Computed example of a mutant assay.
Amino acid sequence: GQGVLIFAVQMGGLGVMTFASLIALAVNHHLKATQRMLTANELGTTKLGEIKGVLTVVITTTFVIEGITFVALFPGLYKVNHGNVRHTLWESLFFAVMAYNNAGFTPDGAGLHVNNWAVGLPILASAFCGTLGFPVLLNLMRSWRMRRPPKRWSLHTKLTLTTTFCIVIASFTWFLLMEWNNKLLFAGDGIEPRLWHAMVAAVMPRSSGFDLSWMPGVSDATKVFLSIVMFIGGGSTSTAGGIRVTTFAVILLTCRAAFTGRHDINAFHRRIHTQAVMTAVAVSTACLMLVTVVSMALMIITGCSLCDALFDTCSAFGLGGYSVGVASESSPTVLYILAATMFIGRLGPLTIAYAISRPHNLEAVRYPTEQIVVG
């Protein structure tokens, strides 16, 4: 059963279009033009001639990061398993695949081996890399090989890294400030467990999951904050869920341009295309409506609070894997609703973005403009 999970998670992490393209390459040794365009959209590249090379880099990068995680996990898990080499090898492989692909499954009930830095840090690092997305990893690899300075990185890489680090730092700071004196989590514990839980809260809720034991004990304010973080999710074309950090960044940049009276939306001395802005607004609005409707449905069915319903909904949509008790086996209807939300959360933003970004025929008629009052 665990082997089936590893295979399914690995294929899901590589991406449906990536896997389909590999099959097409293996059978026909070439890709059709339509397949190249779809794969280019999935991997975030604009040059169709690079598709075969990008696929190779994607596969190589995935297995290299998972291999490094596997090696880094072995010493810590070897001590946890009291010298059982066979069990340690299997757990190292299981955690390495689940961490990079942000699946959050564990091979047993031990969770993330709470407070064990030797096991937790490699998993945190691998999960963080998995949330960046293939375009960012590819751009960083090429920049490192060609010795390009950060100012020559692509705009997508700059936006993804900047927004991701801001969210991680904000989550880390928020957890320390709001949960430092939480007796349900830290009854007589020292500084180290607090720092560890803050690091887990900064990285894992965005899409990784793993250890679920501490989540029901956090305050309502932290639940709402983490709901926002899970709704944003990780990077585009990554193994994470949510509306994606670049979508969130474009929304913030659009608001900044509106407040400052500018028509162009700029970032890092580059202008963002209007089509990207429309896609970000459409994805954010549609996903926000989904989260709102599902949250109200959970409140009606279970009678839970808005805070708990919003948390479980955003966790399902962002593929976070956490729960504060709304999802339970006693209510199959809730489980079906959350399962559907997970499915939409994985495919919905990508589907909406592709539907908006795909080539359209030019409009034959353009109507005259007229002012309306908004706000």
Rank of each mutant, 00 (worst) to 15 (best):
G3Y: 13
A8Y: 07
V9K: 03
M17L: 15
T18P: 08
A20L: 14
S21D: 03
A24K: 04
A24F: 04
A24G: 01
A26C: 11
A26Y: 14
H29S: 09
A33K: 14
R36V: 08
M37C: 05
A40I: 08
N41A: 11
N41M: 08
E42C: 01
L48S: 11
V64K: 05
I65V: 08
G67V: 12
G67A: 08
G67Q: 12
N81Q: 14
H82I: 10
H82P: 01
G83V: 11
V85L: 10
F94N: 07
F95M: 12
A96F: 04
A96N: 07
Y100S: 05
N101F: 10
G109K: 11
V114K: 11
N115C: 03
N115P: 00
N116G: 06
L121E: 02
I123K: 11
F128H: 09
C129E: 09
V136D: 10
N139Q: 01
L140C: 12
M141S: 11
R142D: 02
S143K: 04
W144E: 02
R145E: 14
R145Q: 15
M146D: 13
R147L: 08
R148D: 13
P150K: 00
K151N: 09
R152E: 14
T157R: 06
K158W: 02
T162C: 02
T162N: 03
C166R: 00
V168E: 12
T173L: 15
L177A: 15
M178S: 13
M178G: 06
M178Q: 14
N182A: 04
G188E: 13
L195M: 10
A201S: 13
G209K: 00
G217D: 14
V218Y: 13
K223E: 04
S227G: 10
G233L: 02
S236F: 01
S238W: 00
A240I: 06
A240R: 01
V245E: 03
T254Y: 00
T254R: 04
R256F: 00
R256H: 02
G261T: 11
D264N: 08
D264A: 09
I265R: 08
N266L: 00
I272P: 10
I272H: 09
I272V: 09
M278R: 15
A282G: 09
S284C: 11
S284G: 00
L290A: 12
L290K: 04
L290W: 05
V291R: 06
S295A: 15
S295Y: 07
S315Q: 05
S315E: 10
A316T: 03
F317L: 14
Y322W: 02
G325S: 07
S330W: 09
P332A: 05
V334K: 03
Y336D: 12
L338K: 03
A339C: 04
A340K: 02
T341Q: 02
M342I: 09
M342F: 02
R346A: 12
R346Y: 14
L347E: 09
P349M: 01
P349R: 05
A353K: 05
I356S: 06
H360D: 06
H360F: 06
L362N: 14
R366I: 13
P368H: 01
P368E: 09
V373L: 12
G375Y: 00
